[in-house]
Amino acid sequence: MIRFLLKKLFYMVVSLFVLASATFFLMKIIPGNPFMSEKEIPKAIRAMLEAKYGLDKPLWSQYLTYLNNLIHLDLGMSMKQQYTTVSSIIGTGFLYSLQLGIFAIILSVTAGIVLGIIAALNHRKFLDTFTIFIAVLGVSIPNFVVASGLQYFLGVKLRWFDVAGLNDPTDYVMPTIALAVLPAAFIARLTRSSMLEVLTADYIKTARAKGMSGRIILYRHALRNAILPVVTYIGPMTANIITGSVIVEQIFGIGGLGKFFVNSITNRDYTLIMGLTLFYAVILMLARFLTDIAYAFIDPRIKLSSRKEG
């Protein structure tokens, strides 16, 4: 177990290093820099700014400084927002995205699994067809359509919720739904197909031959075996959701991480791009790591020590 953890940790550091380097150089390849705007800045001021942020030094020197700061967990100052560190931007943004994300994950996983089971148990009957129809809709309708739809009907027409912002607890409802629809639909379809496969397995017949009731067969025998593909999906999905959705956050006017991600790139805010990319990578790796551990808990055939890095 400890060997497994150390190995994982080592791989994580290596991946982060590769990622950090790749992002650094890619960013430098993009034309433009943080101090380009419609208005030409006087050469002297520009030189001063570049000197301040170390952009006048040769590339390798910038790279080394950057790596050195990274080792000390210093993500630097934002180049666009005065007197703000990248860490504090991530901190405030992530707080919103995380809160929303957790709600969305809970909603999508519960709704998805329940719908998937209902569909599987009613295979080829009305409820199955109906659920799958809804799921296909959920997968194919982009979330900005869902988000604006919710705003229009629940916000403007019915006046149940505020159209935007995150001030009251009820303000979380619409963005959560908007975030959860797609993953919920996806999980429902995964659960359904996985359940259908498991329900025809021989060991389900064995359980029936033992006189187990339908409920026990479903929960003890079928679901645990059927849930593995869903867990595989939930890992990366978690990372995706809690790091924020650009579109949903933009539509509901929430200052989450997603918004910063896009803005940082259009602004060429070098330090913020780097910081967010690495942050996203860390979250993704953590999510995958937790998925691996969850696997081992669900399926005894999977041993942490023998699992290859995936």
Binding site: Y203, T206, G211, R301
Partner: peptide, 29 residues
């Protein structure tokens, strides 16, 4: 089922539940 009639299936590789211990699979009945 299980109480008055017991059943053994053809393929022991697939007829036991992979996620439950053998003990659990005997004791639940």
């Amino acid at each position: 089922r299980g109480k008055e009639m017991g059943m053994i299936f053809q393929d022991p590789m697939t007829s036991l539940n992979p996620t439950l211990t053998i003990g659990k699979q005997i004791t639940e009945g």
